[in-house]
Design a protein around this nucleic acid. Sequence first.
DNA 1: CTGCTAGTCTAAGGAATTCT
DNA 2: AGAATTCCTTAGACTAGCAG
Length: 215
Amino acid sequence: MRRQLQLIYKILYSHFGPQRWWPAESAFEVMVGAILTQNTNWGNVSRAIDNLRQNKLITPNKLYKLPQERLALLIRPTGYYNIKAKRLREFLRFFLKNYKGSISRISRERIWRLREFLLAIKGIGPETADSIMLYALNKPVFVIDTYTKRILLRHGFISPDFGYAEVQNLFMKNLKPQAGLFNEFHALLVRLAKEYCLKDNPKCHSCPLKGILRA
DNA sequence: CTGCTAGTCTAAGGAATTCT
DNA sequence: AGAATTCCTTAGACTAGCAG
């Protein structure tokens, strides 16, 4: 298993090269993006982030001061904007109250403790929590998403009933806990899913992972 | 019959709430 | 406890209808 995961990483990296995630100007912006990107493609999130940037609103305090309805309007391109405005505010409240909106303060929190806290916020589930930890705070936590599950399923590494934690364990028990590696690995899996491991008509014939199945 | 445009449909993508 | 439903926009694919 360990060797196979390493092999997959190696193949993907040499095929696609480094992905340079996550495109943001600050760690805080990544956090905001992680919530906005729920059930939404990045293009839409990008528009919303632009709206916030243009209004110079990407700081915890400014965003939290904004009335929910105005916030909703600004993040409209991401879809589900009313719900996301609420979720964003829930997170902001937590971040301001416990860490004064400071990245360096929240970074000092121990990993699994912080994860528990994040999961307790209404509107933050496992994927969003892990994205925040890995991509904003550089914590070695492997992010699982539908793309990752789809690839692993098709290659026989998991069955459909595997839950989030089980899939995550597969990676975390078998890889060195390095944020840089987890970051790149997940980004590469997303890239593969978007170009080859499509939902409907997967391009298995030309897929870089063709023939890689669990031994 | 070809080429355009306007309209309709579908895919993509997490978490919470509300059934059964 | 597990399954279904809710929340929404955008891009791209497809279709219908019409003008040339």
